[in-house]
Amino acid sequence: MSLWEYANPKKFLALSGKVLPWVSGLALACLVIGLVWGFFFTPEDYRQGATVKIIYLHVPAALMAINSWLMMLVASLIWIVRRHHVSALAAKAAAPVGMVMTVIALVTGAIWGQPMWGTWWAWDPRLTSFLILFLFYLGYMALWDAIENPDTAADLTSILCLVGSVFAVLSRYAVLFWNQGLHQGASLSMDAEENVADVFWYPLLVCMAGFVLLFLALVLLRTRTEIRARRIKAILARERAA
């Protein structure tokens, strides 16, 4: 029995139906433990005070914002190469989740940035990259919505995802270059997580696990919905043709 058999919609529905409650429960548990631990049982940072605690939302969201696009890229490649419909639908399902993660990362970043740097927004390379990533998500989802034929939509969005990935990486480097070019020797360090102490690190790890599981649960749920929507569409099309 090969792994690819789960690419069959029916098998996928059966398996994901069994797995989904566990993943959801585990996600909830991790998030509750991680956030409560992080918010109430860690010391305040000697420089940043209590504001540092937004890290437990900010960093996991940012992590998933990027990994969700990566997952879409892998799913798109599987669709192009092996043409498993579930794979294309999973990519479609992941896009809005990834977009919301990007928004969470941007908003929590702004809220964190206000007391720290005295500004809601700075054209820092990292922030700007996320804004561009957000635009890529928007375009990807808009293309899915615009095309009637689901197979054509899957084909076109897969190619867009591929080309978009290349340009997202290019943009990342371009933005890094651009801002260094503007502010030689910037004095503001925005890499807060690079010198995180263990006390903050462990609850953060739990939160990240929680976000990964939450993402997985949401994508599974949405993929199941997409499969059913697709089936309804196919049945309707068949009845029209009959």
Binding site: A7, N8, P9, H85, I227, R231, K233, R238, A242
Partner: peptide, 16 residues
Amino acid sequence: KAVHRDIPGGFEEAFL
């Protein structure tokens, strides 16, 4: 004209 046949065991890869 293509006639629809039910595939035994439910809907398959093509959702039909």
